[in-house]
Simulated assay, not measured.
Amino acid sequence: MEKRRISFDLLVFDTLDELSKSEKALMQIAVEARENAYAPYSKFMVGAAILLANDEIVIGNNQENASYPSGLCAERVAIFQAGAKYPKVEIKTIAISVSSKTHIVDRPAAPCGNCRQAIAEYEQKQNSSIAIIMMGASGKIFKCESLEDILPLAFGSSYLK
């Protein structure tokens, strides 16, 4: 038997001002997208902003539905929109911001499993990393350089051959 340890580096920032100018601007767009989320059931608002290689920015926010689980998360709304609108353009960075209408979210929330899988598919498709920046309504900001960091044993198309 062999035991292996899987780990990654996570960058932790105290404020938005510690991010690069472009990352800060992208996160501010994610915050704006979050404010337009449709979350009447969970009251958990999520916004995502994606920076593409052509400098276009695509946004998404969570869209709930009374018929759970037919809603869609902000990250998948944004990444699927990017794939539909700019199918051949590489995704560079995703900024994700979360808040709640019922309590203060003072830490980042990472993408759910479904969103991790969708982002992983795009990393595999474009054969390059997608940086992920995450923040709550307040508190620290997290950044990882690739989805593979938070989903190291991702399922992908190579298994389907």
Rank of each mutant, 00 (worst) to 15 (best):
R76F: 00
D55G: 09
K125A: 13
K125R: 11
V46R: 11
N62S: 00
E56I: 05
A131W: 15
A66P: 13
L147I: 15
N62H: 06
E56P: 04
F13K: 09
G139Y: 13
K3W: 05
N62A: 01
A53N: 04
Q117I: 03
E145D: 09
S100M: 08
V31W: 13
A37H: 02
L153K: 14
S129C: 10
Y159G: 12
S128F: 01
L147C: 14
A120L: 08
A84S: 07
V77Q: 06
S20D: 14
A33P: 11
A53E: 04
A74Y: 01
K21G: 12
A118H: 05
M134E: 11
L16N: 12
R5P: 06
F8C: 12
I130A: 04
I150T: 01
E123D: 01
D14P: 08
A39L: 01
A74C: 05
V46M: 10
V46H: 15
E32R: 14
N54K: 08
I141Q: 02
E56Q: 13
S129E: 15
L147S: 13
A66H: 11
P152F: 05
D9E: 14
L52H: 02
E35R: 14
N54G: 14
D14Y: 05
A37E: 05
K3M: 04
N54P: 12
I96V: 14
F155T: 09
A118Q: 05
S99H: 00
R116E: 08
E148Y: 08
G83Y: 12
R4P: 00
S22Q: 15
A78M: 04
S42W: 00
K161R: 06
S129Y: 02
P111H: 02
L19N: 10
K161F: 08
A37F: 09
V46Q: 03
Q28L: 12
Q124N: 10
A39W: 05
K88Y: 10
A109T: 08
C144E: 06
A49L: 11
S20W: 14
Q63I: 13
D14H: 04
Q117F: 06
P40T: 00
V89L: 03
E56D: 10
G113V: 13
E2L: 01
D106K: 09
A30F: 01
R4E: 10
A25V: 01
L19I: 03
I59N: 09
V58R: 04
E148D: 14
M134R: 05
I57V: 10
V105C: 08
I29G: 02
I94C: 10
L51H: 00
V98W: 11
A30D: 02
A137Q: 15
H103A: 07
Y41V: 02
Q124G: 12
C112T: 03
T102A: 05
Y86W: 11
E56L: 02
S128V: 00
L11T: 09
P108Q: 03
E32A: 15
N62K: 03
K161S: 09
A109S: 12
N127L: 11
Y38H: 10
E2G: 04
G47I: 01
G71H: 00
E35Q: 07
Y86E: 06
C144I: 15
A110W: 09
S146W: 12
E2V: 08
F8D: 12
I50K: 04
K161C: 03
D17I: 02
S128H: 03
Q81A: 15
